[in-house]
Design a binder for these strands. Structure first.
Lengths: 220, 220
DNA sequence: TAGATTGTTAATCGATTAACAATC
DNA sequence: TAGATTGTTAATCGATTAACAATC
């Protein structure tokens, strides 16, 4: 099997390629140059990445859009539907529950869970919010394999524990906390404040570099 | 200056260290082992990362929490207040505007902007939402250097253009679209659907690996 | 055949891990 | 002095970039 040896860095870019392909679906064929431009990487990088999946292009021509889309989909397991439960239906949970882009990436949001009695029972994005106490039954009923944690940081670990106990094996958390999980559970974290800090650092460094470049070396 | 040569991979972890330090603020000193555990990295990785900033630890003892926190803060520019404008006040924009964790990381959310007349004029997290047409004045008035794009994907590029035209140099976007920006503008993208896909891939691969390990090699 | 573009190999670069000397 | 822990150097590993041969 080839998929087992696709490098992590490549895997992290595949969803972007998939997305860029959707945008050019009407064109029958794309070159690495066109697709790379749409995805925001270099053509060399794109070709190298795709070569890990197999040889799906035609030299002198390019890549068949539909075929490539399908092949990347196979590697990412888009056809393997995954069921998602979102815990924490505040503004962020609302945003996630309402986001329409998950289905075509292979994810079905099947349940929403919250701790607040005021929120439990309300209808959000076509689903009725269920109480956190029912998490085991909710996971069992929906067959959820992925849990999304959209609760305040101080409750992230206990929600994480509850999701894991209920049988979820993949976790996406938005809480700025390192989560402790047993072996066999995969965690991915999105921390918006950290993203802002990394962004600001790069921005500041860039400006410092530009300034330095503007001053003739002799002057320093 | 040393900060200019801090590796990207290290920079990306510094916010996590900063956050882990906050959790142990009452302890006067931490060892690399303790802090690494809290941040979810190896002690070697942590020490290596910190060594790029300088030699702030004491051999045989550990790191002074307050001092290290301050030094990382200096590198990340926490003291350099940055002003943020959020564009798109749907559920996601609401969540971002209401998030209380930005201030202590050096960011002040100074303005909220939306295109919808129904939303413009309403008060969110203590700020009155302003119309997108006023973006140039809003950026000028607040001195915003960072823009957060929380609008639907199809409007991301035009909002991006407007923010750049208004003078913003750093952009954090949540829209699953590669943004085109001029030189001198730094972009960072958070794509939740992609994160889910990457998570699911790692999760699936992990399970495949575990299964393979369970089967004696001879059997294959 | 000529032109275009992929896919692969080699070279470079950057990041992580491991080992241990320095030193509190 | 003995024990603990950092900071640095070296070794390994993985990712990116560049060059070009293969081939449509």
């Amino acid at each position: 099997m080839s998929a087992a040896q696709v490098p992590d860095a490549t895997v992290a870019r595949l969803p972007r390629y998939l997305h860029a392909l959707e945008a050019v679906r009407d064109a029958g064929v794309v070159t690495s140059q066109e697709l790379a431009r749409a995805a925001g990487v270099s053509p060399e990088q794109l070709r190298k990445d795709l070569s890990f999946l197999g040889s799906y292009g035609r030299r002198g021509v390019g890549y068949d859009v539909a075929h490539l889309e399908q092949q990347i989909g196979v590697v990412l397991g888009v056809a393997t539907r995954r069921t998602v439960v979102i815990v924490g239906i505040g503004y962020l949970g609302h945003a996630l529950a309402s986001y329409g882009g998950f289905a075509e990436r292979g994810f079905d949001v099947a349940a929403l869970v919250d701790v607040d009695p005021q929120v439990v029972g309300t209808r959000v994005a076509g689903l009725v919010v269920e109480p956190i106490e029912d998490l085991p039954q909710v996971v069992a009923r929906t067959g959820a394999s992925v849990g999304v944690i959209a609760v305040p940081a101080q409750h992230a670990q206990s929600v994480c524990d509850a999701l894991v106990a209920a049988g979820v094996t993949g976790l996406l958390t938005f809480a700025p906390r390192a989560l402790r999980v047993p072996d066999g559970v995969t965690v991915r974290a999105v921390d918006v404040a950290s993203e802002l800090q990394i962004l600001a650092f790069h921005d500041a460094r860039r400006h410092a570099d530009l300034e330095r470049a503007a001053v003739p070396p002799r002057a320093r």
